[in-house]
Nucleic acid binder design. Structure first.
Lengths: 174, 174
DNA sequence: TAGATTGTTAATCGATTAACAATC
DNA sequence: TAGATTGTTAATCGATTAACAATC
């Protein structure tokens, strides 16, 4: 993984001492501890907004539980696909978002929606108590309201990084 | 963008001087220069391997030209979807990969395929002269053969980062 | 000349690496 | 005791920030 032993020891010490000097690490215990730090033992209720190509891909391929998230709802504004099954869930009308959230209190939202509607959706969701966003839209969520956690995934930027690498013969796989 | 003026000047100077002291930058010229550095003015022939949910999402939503790439072929092993249209292209049988590459000489490949077949596909593509990979599979491409450029996108890692942020109340939007 | 803005050098900061003490 | 391995401090490296010279 391109990491030195020294770096691993330093990093682990940010969270505490997990090994025994002269003896080593209990690997399975260490693994569990790291999992706890990352929060993979949680089941945070998560909803997906937007069941287009990307939303569908994520709903099908991402193992949410593996990251401590539990996908409990999928929403879309397209009435033609509302009611359709997607994985183990059924696509719900975005108009029912408020009702659903008041009843189920999700904490995390995955945003697979166009830039133009993202601000409105984020406003509605924060109002409803959602504090964490996995954001695939091109809109940059404005964290004026602190205590909100955002993980942006801008795939276009990633392709641009590759393009730079191609044009400058860089091995950026580190 | 959370950048200081100093940082921008430093970064620009890695590539040369683009402004005039006391006067400023010619913004549209600077923009063009940065574009050239990133290679967005190129039209590198690009193929997409795997037309599942994720591959479809990328084919539809990503503006390849904007990053200097030109999508010229889409391949899948599923005979049921071979021949189907996808965007402006038609899904081609993966068995025709060699023929297509010898004729069209693509430089970049987007990998939306399962981990299990990635090594084989990468071997075939490098043999055919493809040197750059935008890799969405979970397989870590082994760059033993230098001169190969890889940009990995592991969406699961991104969700795990969010999970850590949620559990430790970190604002990681910087 | 005064004000403004870039280019470049120096200072600061943080992260990586190396060294070594502690311990089995 | 010798060898091995973690925890922790010190040294090194690189990137960010600050300072200032150059220029309009």
């Amino acid at each position: 993984m391109h990491l030195t032993a020294s770096q691993i020891r330093q990093d682990l010490n940010c969270f505490g001492g997990f090994g025994q000097q002269g003896y080593g690490y209990n690997v399975s215990e260490l693994r569990k501890e790291i999992g706890r730090i990352l929060g993979v033992d949680k089941h945070r209720k998560t909803i997906l907004i937007g069941a287009g190509n990307l939303g569908t891909a994520l709903a099908v391929h991402i193992n949410f539980e593996k990251s401590g998230c539990s996908l409990i709802g999928i929403f879309d504004s397209n009435k033609k696909i509302v009611g359709n099954p997607l994985g183990k869930l059924t696509i719900t009308d975005i108009d029912d978002l408020e009702k659903f959230c008041r009843e189920n209190k999700p904490e995390v939202a995955v945003l697979c929606i166009p830039k133009s509607v993202t601000k409105e959706i984020v406003d509605r969701l924060t109002e409803l108590g959602v504090r964490s966003f996995w954001n695939f839209s091109h809109y940059d969520i404005n964290v004026e309201h602190k205590n909100i956690i955002v993980e942006n995934v801008h795939l276009g930027d990633s392709l641009l990084t590759l393009s730079y690498g191609v044009n400058n013969n860089l091995d950026n796989d580190k």
